[in-house]
Write a protein that binds this DNA or RNA. Sequence first.
DNA 1: CGTGGCTCCTGGCGGC
DNA 2: TGCCGCCAGGAGCCAC
Length: 262
Amino acid sequence: MPELPEVETFRRYIDATSLQKTILDISISNTKILEGIDQGLLEKNLLHKKFERTSRHGKYVFIASNNKHFLVLHFGMTGFLKYFKNEDEKPNHTRLLIEFDNNYKLAYVNQRLFCKVNVIDDKDTYTHDKHLGIDALDISFEEFRNLLKKHDSMIKSLLMNQSIIAGIGNIYADEILFQSGIHPATKVQKISDKKIRNMYDKLRNVLNVSISVQADFEKYPDGFIIPHRKKQGSYPKGNETLKTMKVNNRTTYFCPVHQKKS
DNA sequence: CGTGGCTCCTGGCGGC
DNA sequence: TGCCGCCAGGAGCCAC
């Protein structure tokens, strides 16, 4: 689930809840979430320290501590956060639990274990080693156009490729292409300059609007297909029926009327 | 370089 | 009701 808008929402949630509090305890309920580190390192670097600020690159959140380490969170397909006080509020599938000196706790929750937690010293080294491309909201139009000129995959594959542009996954790739009127399987080199310009604007708009509604399915404005993703889901604004297909083995929703292959 | 298949996991759903 | 296969919004690896 968590793509750029969700992850940005989580980042802001951390800012609103978990900064400048001394960390009293860290517990891990399943060590599979740890990305090549052990719990000892996590404790050594974070225990009795404070989180100071956050940043995000693509689908990764980095939480800087006051001793120059970074807690890295990647949410996989099912991850989210919850800040709470009473034990009965602790969500199922809490994998990492950070307890602060005000008796509140931050839970990193993940049903499936397609997620990663790490603690690092250098963000640039980390994103470089991960081959992460430029963040989708940091890219300029010129950079976007130049990246598109360099590849010739299906446009949806390019948008989802984290090593080219970081942050867009299956859901938002579909949304951007729907709003751009571009068929998901269109080869990148077939897209006109005019459509590239339009797609860039739609990309920014989709991500920014989604962040502004905190990626809440209930709150997306009319004109978004995200809330209509379901089998044979119709898109009520027109009379069209959304269709599904596979692109790179991922389920893809699109409107066959307004997203013609060019 | 691009694509497709497999894998890591868990759980919900539909079909039989 | 029970079992089974399929599917899910991520991503790394490998073969072609």
